[in-house]
Design a protein around this nucleic acid. Sequence first.
DNA 1: TGTCAATTGTTGACATCATCAAGTATTGAG
DNA 2: CTCAATACTTGATGATGTCAACAATTGACA
Lengths: 139, 139
Amino acid sequence: MKHTSRDACDAWQLLVQFFFTQRAHLPVLAAELELSPAQCHLLHLIEPGRPIPMRRLAETLACDASNVTGLVDRLESRGLVRRRPSGEDRRVKVLDLTPTGSRLRALLVDRMTTPPATLGRLSVREQRMLVRILTRVLE
Amino acid sequence: MKHTSRDACDAWQLLVQFFFTQRAHLPVLAAELELSPAQCHLLHLIEPGRPIPMRRLAETLACDASNVTGLVDRLESRGLVRRRPSGEDRRVKVLDLTPTGSRLRALLVDRMTTPPATLGRLSVREQRMLVRILTRVLE
DNA sequence: TGTCAATTGTTGACATCATCAAGTATTGAG
DNA sequence: CTCAATACTTGATGATGTCAACAATTGACA
């Protein structure tokens, strides 16, 4: 068993703490956009102009395919998402954002990626360092 | 409106990416412990030997108090958590981990805070830098 | 070619999560 | 003592998530 350094554990622990904090904030943010946390997550995964098969969403979310069916049902009934048959494989349906969905997703991403004031306390050098380090850690 | 630097946005975006990745992993980890994601979150908030009022959990989770009632019902019926009347205020019930709950929580925390291999690719200097920076950003 | 297992998405049944409105018990201010 | 506010529970309802079963399609292979 490989030894894991104390510093690495500390760092990861902080990231986990960050995760739980965000997890508690998401319902609030979602409610502002009249979405649920799960819908936010799904919407986040569909990039505009990049249709994606439903199967792949289920894989990324690590959930049952039928769960995606339900989530997409609700998003589609609100006109945020479109189901389209895949040209290559007729079993597959690909998802696409409607213009409305695209706008809402932009709003969501914007809200989520607007950094908190605390990030401004770092020097530019530190900010760049953080980006460099996180990029490597998250691959 | 204050200008937010490009670097700060990049950094936060990476953290958000990390958040969604973890959000997708949590159900898998939770299932291994026979818990739900929400139960993991709640369990994570109850530190052993530090009884906590239910109200405070609802605040931290940013959810309705009745939701906590249900979550605690299930955890209590599994013998992981105890409801106790608060000595100071008889309206309040404080939550406490049972020995079983304490063990399960330790397992959970251990699984969650075991850093992925990618963190080991950083130099010790970088790991410490990451800890220092995150500490300041997350307060 | 014809058969059959595997894959994709859907449906229905069911437990959990989460909110809201209403209710009980208790507190604390006046 | 009265009454609003607080902490928790209950019941109703919709969303999330799993599982088993199903139809349609694909692809391998005899």
